[in-house]
Design a protein around this nucleic acid. Structure first.
Length: 814
DNA sequence: AGCACGCCGACT
DNA sequence: GTCGGCGTGCTC
């Protein structure tokens, strides 16, 4: 590390595509280290900066010292610095912002302007000559300084921004920098340590003597809390004991355990023949540096046990393990497996933890108290210093793509991280992404297969119901066809569970006025509202706008609004109506939003207090529901017609996954698949869970249209309040791209510009949306081009009133 | 980002 | 005349 007053390279948490050199003040030299945050003076502000390392020699003039070192322990190991730099480079995102997105939320310090009353301001309050609004404002500030931003907003809203401005001009109010520290620090507990050579015990009172004895017995060090359990009066007595030289009081961070629950340790089960074949080469790979392994195992084939076996070997080699799982509910399932096997060495990270808990889990990994990190996509940044294995479960899952801010793909970053850490990465799925299958076909990834379910359980038998030919005479609840109803009745009679899948929530997705035929639309988005009967509102699924169930048609005033289109709520209602004795539950975004709701539903399934579960894609994801023997897919076609080249891939994955929820226990399962496209190959291959057959049909289509994985894409998106302005800037951006390509021959045949066009959903939350695509054979070329464009025309990326974002490897075209 | 500087059009 | 909106450049 840098010696006193040496220079360090710092990435500041601001959208600046550069790092900066700072001087280490003599006072902080000992404390500075890579991975710690510093408070860095930046123009006239102070920003959080992240120490990346010693600065390159000869870095210019005007170097200022950092003001403060903000952490006692580094937040990330030095090994992550190249990882962050690569990400910044690849996603064209400032390094400081990359690190900020990577760290658990709420720990960044920044400074803000405060409005404070000056001396003159105080005097004028008593002397007079003020208007009423001036007096009101000054009195408000007399209590305490206020955040200037908030104050400006308030006065602007009240229509007198002028008062504030005039008071500042006259020097009655002044703005000052106020350091606003991050919200979360590690919780500290008081620790009592026995002094090196305590005076003799003879003269002590019994209580004091017991304290010293307790400490001696504990090896000289206890938290005050523990000590209090043995000696209740310890709280009062430690101070005088410290004064007398017996002990030393200190502080130490404590780690909160987010899991109350005890999990019984398990013993590794014996492996199936297939697992026996798969595990050894993976274990061998642990000693062979970087490699990527695609574990393709049908649903229920025991991929998790493979992860556990290989993870155990990685741990035995003294390395850490990183496990990525698509979402919270699955994290707890994975976590249970890992905790049962590895106990306390597991750290979990996901959004349901409080900021403080997340921070603690982070630090447990950073300082090596935990060696296994399990979490959702952001855990790819977990501060393990030497991962020996990275697992990405359900690697095809769309939720690995972050769709705001730093738009990274956690699976791709996992592969990169493994490359840098020189360890294997294991991608598991029953329905691998086209991208990963392509890489396997190219020989970049090694393939491993699990074609059979554990305990020789058969794959579910699938019956397709052609919705084009269903009997329309039973119009009511027609989406539950007679075949499905019969199967449900049989299943429920046997006391088994049913899962119904429909990829749309709410009651009716198309509320239509029976008088004028217009749909109820959102005021702020170009989308129709969805009726949510349970909550008694029409709701917009994009911006949250809602209106009352009693609304009349805004076009003609008609009061009769027909609830056309279906959703999980409608299905739930129909099931309750048709099977009044069954206990029905619904699992979708609406019912799982509350903290702990998902776990409660899963518990209900496990304990069999739920007979029928109706749900959206959330139920399709990797859950292990042992008592479900019938899966009904209400309409397999909903995701098929999205304006997105991956619509088919998504449909295949959804259907194959949800079908895989059936028959995971001892009784064989079956699936009733209702569809308007029974012959479509996405539907057919999903039925047989045949990822290879799907891939063989899909890849020529991608090749013909030159879509990924046979090309690379970068999306440029624009959002703005003003419709025409957004359109104009989009056009301008498009023209500049084409002009620069024409002018620079090296880009001429490497890049195709598609668009700009208005986005399929042209307006969300009052923002008009445009997008364009850059397509090329090599991502490097696209990135080089964009960097040049940003350098030459920075104004294109920060036009007034319009937000431009760059999405490298976009996953959604909406 | 956030701030200063400089450039225009439109108001007291 | 100057106020405010917008483009431009810079931050160790």
């Amino acid at each position: 590390m840098p010696s006193p007053s040496e220079h360090i390279e710092v990435a500041v948490a601001a959208p600046v595509h550069k790092t900066f050199t700072y001087r280490v003040p003599d006072s902080g030299a000992a404390a500075i280290a890579v991975g710690k945050r510093v408070l860095a003076p930046f123009r006239n502000r102070s920003l959080t900066g992240y120490v990346l390392g010693p600065a390159a020699a000869g870095s210019g003039e005007g170097i200022r010292p950092v003001l403060e070192v903000l952490d006692e322990e580094p937040l990330f190991p030095p090994a992550l610095v190249p990882f962050f730099r690569w990400i910044a480079d690849y996603y064209l995102y400032p390094v400081g912002e990359v690190i900020k997105s990577a760290l658990p939320g709420g720990i960044n310090a920044a400074s803000a302007w405060q409005a404070t009353l000056t001396e003159a301001g105080c005097r004028s309050l008593s002397l007079g000559f003020l208007t009423a609004s001036e007096r009101r404002l000054l009195t408000f500030l007399l209590e305490t300084p206020r955040n200037l931003r908030a104050l400006e907003r308030q006065s602007a809203a009240a229509g007198d921004a002028e008062t504030l401005r005039s008071l500042m001009r006259r020097g009655l109010i002044e703005r000052r920098r106020q350091l606003r520290s991050g919200r979360v620090g590690p919780r500290k507990t008081r620790v009592v340590t026995l002094a090196a050579a305590p005076p003799s015990l003879e003269s002590l009172t019994p209580a004091r003597r017991r304290i010293v004895e307790q400490l001696q017995r504990a090896g000289g060090r206890l938290t005050l809390g523990t000590l209090r359990q043995a000696v209740p009066s310890a709280g009062r007595l430690v101070k005088p004991l410290q004064a007398a030289g017996y002990l030393i009081l200190g502080e130490q961070p404590v780690y909160r355990d987010p899991l109350g629950e005890q999990i019984a340790p398990d013993r590794p089960p014996s492996l199936t023949a297939e697992q026996e074949r798969v595990v050894p080469p993976l274990t061998a790979a642990l000693d062979g540096g970087f490699s990527v392994h695609l574990l393709q195992g049908v649903t229920g084939s025991g991929k998790t046990e493979v992860y556990l076996r290989v993870a155990a070997e990685a741990l035995a080699r003294g390395r850490g393990v990183l496990v990525l799982v698509p979402e919270i509910a699955l994290i707890s399932q994975m976590e249970r497996c890992f905790r049962a096997r590895f106990g306390q060495r597991v750290a979990v990270m996901h959004s349901a933890l409080t900021a403080a808990e997340r921070h603690d889990q982070w630090l447990r990994l950073a300082n090596g108290r935990a060696a296994i990190a399990i979490g959702a996509r952001s855990s790819v940044f977990a501060p393990l210093s030497r991962p020996g294995l990275i697992v990405v479960d359900e690697e095809h899952d769309a939720s690995y793509k972050q769709e705001s801010g730093l738009r990274y793909h956690a699976r791709d970053l996992a592969v990169l991280r493994a490359r840098q850490a020189e360890c294997p990465v294991l991608l598991g799925s029953a329905t691998p992404s086209v991208q990963s299958q392509f890489n396997a076909a190219q020989g970049k990834y090694r393939s491993h297969h699990l074609k059979h379910r554990v305990f020789e359980r058969p794959l579910p038998q699938i019956v397709t119901v052609d919705l084009r030919r269903t009997d329309r005479r039973t119009r009511e609840n027609a989406f539950l066809t007679p075949v499905l109803r019969k199967a449900m009745a049989e299943t429920l009679d046997r006391g088994e569970q049913v899962l119904l899948f429909l990829n749309r929530r709410g009651y009716a997705s198309l509320p239509l006025c029976s008088a004028c035929g217009q749909a109820l639309r959102c005021r702020r988005c170009d989308i129709s509202l969805t009726l949510h009967q349970a909550s008694g509102i029409y709701k917009c699924h994009y911006c949250g706008y809602s209106r009352s169930l009693r609304s009349v048609c805004p076009h003609c005033g008609g009061a009769d609004i027909k609830p056309l289109g279906m959703g999980t709520e409608k299905v739930e209602g129909a099931v309750r109506h048709l099977f009044p004795n069954a206990s029905v539950a619904r699992m979708d975004h609406d019912t799982t939003r509350a903290k702990g709701a998902t776990l409660k539903l899963l518990k209900g399934l496990r304990k069999r207090t739920i007979d029928v579960l109706v749900g959206t894609q959330i139920v399709a994801k990797g859950h292990d529901f042992p008592h479900i023997t019938l899966v009904g897919v209400i309409c397999a076609d909903l995701s098929l017609n999205f304006p997105d080249f991956r619509a088919g891939e998504r449909t295949f994955q959804l259907i194959a996954q949800v079908a895989g929820r059936a028959g995971r226990g001892e009784i064989a399962g079956r699936v009733i698949l209702q569809t308007y496209n029974p012959d479509h190959f996405y539907v057919r291959t999903a039925c047989s869970q045949d990822a290879q057959a799907f891939y063989a049909r899909e890849i020529p289509l991608r090749r013909a249209l030159r879509y990924p994985p046979l090309s690379k894409l970068v999306a440029l998106r624009l959002r703005g309040r003003n419709r025409s302005r957004t359109a104009v800037y989009a056009q301008r951006l498009g023209e500049s791209c084409r002009r620069l390509i024409a002018r620079e021959p090296r880009f001429a045949d490497g890049i195709t510009v598609l668009g700009p066009t208005e986005a399929p959903i042209a307006r969300i939350a009052g923002r008009h949306r445009w997008q364009m695509l850059l397509k090329g054979d090599r991502m490097r070329t696209l990135q080089r081009f964009l960097r040049l464009l940003m350098a030459r025309h920075p104004e294109l990326f920060s036009p007034a009133g319009v937000r431009v974002t760059i999405d490298v490897d976009p996953m959604s075209m909406l």
